[in-house]
Amino acid sequence: MDRRNLEEGFFKIIMAGSAIITVMSLIFILSTVFIKGLPALSIDMIIKTPQGGYYIGREGGILNAILGSLAIGTGATALALAVSLPVVFYLHIYRRKKSKFSKMVRFFLDVLWGVPSIVYGAFGFTVMIFFGLKASLIAGIFTVALLIIPIMARSIDETLRMIPFEMNESCLALGSTRWELAAKVITRQAFPGILTAALISFGRGIGDAASVLFTAGFTDYIPYSLFKPVATLPLAIFFQLGTPFPEVRQRGYASALVLTLLILAVSVVARLMSKKFVRNIIK
């Protein structure tokens, strides 16, 4: 075999190997969570709050964290959507594509995307203190919203880039205002993309521990007020895995399994729904 064939073979093996490592790591993670978590998972765990006065103790369940995470995820996604949509519409419909302003906004969003979530947590904490707010659901929602806005805005941005310019032109040629173009046409055309962006961001937000550590706090109760602390699944897992008790640690894996399944369900729903809504889309 000559040198070029060897070279070809060598790099092919590296590439295929990397692909296999990627796939295997997902399988390993999922199977670890399943194998360790499934035995401890019970109905009680999903429908009960922690019992016995002990933080995430041996009794009861993690309903507080499940509901808390859902509340923070939903609230943050709604808030982030309320900011991201206007930003992206402004860039695409009111600004020219190559304007300096648009470039600057995109650059800032990309930088924000890279900011570690603990920094968002610390920032949220500072702002919270400034407003005299304690760790609470609302503080958690705001912080997680900040964390996912760049992700959501840039994903929607990419979706809107795919829309042919002629669609804008033909809509404006009919006498639409830019706002009508955005609200009646672009939103429809981009709907599957917007939905996917929202659900990806939801998944990202619900799984983040560092941003809620100081801002949402933790509690054994299910969420009942915007101004009281809420529990979240990532923190529940963190606390459970940090205990010296093997059965509590096992419950930590069960919590991780719940969180994983939740995110899995969200991405499956995202795929199904975006299929459903492509009916009217112009390809």
Binding site: E169, L174, V185, R188, N280
Partner: peptide
């Protein structure tokens, strides 16, 4: 723009039903 109907090289229909495409303009106005 309402005074001018425009046809493109490649037709660009809007992402909605046939009915809604035609009704789009009248609704706007």
């Amino acid at each position: 723009r309402k005074k001018m109907g425009l046809l493109f090289q490649r037709p660009q229909v809007l992402p909605m039903s046939i009915y809604e495409n035609v009704a789009y303009g009248p609704r706007l106005h």
